[in-house]
Design a protein around this nucleic acid. Sequence first.
DNA 1: CGGCGTCA
DNA 2: TGACGCCGG
Length: 345
Amino acid sequence: MGGGDIGEILPKHYVGVENLSGSIIAVDAYNMLYQFLSTIRQPDGTPLMDSNGRITSHLSGIIYRVTNLMACGILFIFVFDGSPPELKMKTLKRRKESREYARMQWEYLREISPELALKYAKASAYVDEEIVESAKKLLSYLGVPIVQSPSEGEAQAAFIAARGDAHHVASQDYDSLLFGAPSLIRNMSISHRHYTIISLHETLKTHNITRENLIDVAILIGTDYNDGIRGIGPKKALKLIKKYGCIEKIIAAKKIDTEGIEDYQIIREMFLHPDVYENYEIKWNPPDESKVLSFLCDEHEFSEARVRRALSRIVRERDDDDRSSRDSEKRRKKSSEQARISDWL
DNA sequence: CGGCGTCA
DNA sequence: TGACGCCGG
């Protein structure tokens, strides 16, 4: 909602996928699905679809990305949104309106200028119930655990990581850090050579602030739940919080008005104590090859050769000597790399 | 986005 | 082998 990008004040590390081998990553599912739907398109902006007109861009994204990264030794937990907090409604309404505007522009432009149309097509992407259900189906056939959040997926993912059931949260957004995720991974695609990792602990240490301070900084800039203060970006917000300690004291010192941060106490409380399920089950299953094949190839007309190849990356081979020696080699590599990452966590 | 064929 | 560009559904 706000104008600034809190990412500007977060210390970042860039790591290759090898460094993530052996780690458990809680994925902000909505965020990843949105990325797939927005980017996996034809040059004129049309998403991938089966012959019944059902969108399949996200299924393509999942089958290739998840199998690739699993083959690199990563374990996934996909965390899905529940119902959004009341304070987010304004943002959601605004997003819906700009999506509908983009859809009109796309439909108008697709015959005139495909490459201009593409931009609007991407902006018109949305995650509906059918997208969510088909994604859950494919993930469950792949044996990937799914966790439902009562409210924000990022909050649930952060809770899972903070509790120690995952090492990182994967999302393009920064909110999971505010929700207490110890580590955030961005740009987690196969084509990105290096992923961005942000450690909450390192962030707080770098600026000598608390998580509550960081949340106040985010509220001043603007979040999904408030507009933020006009003219205040991440640098100014951080400076103010470091000088005065909290939003209450900045207001008391008459440095800012409350316009754009009216609900700051409620929002701060939401980030500190979000609505999450404390009981959830995380269980990795072996992929059900035949269910994946019938779902993707029979129902959605994927190429069987391609899907088989993707699956071959993650299905257990016969347990011969070759295999077990490679496995133990991987395990040795994994523990030394895990130690390297934990240096700055 | 990721797969896959092409070409140097 | 790696950069490039079209195709997938």
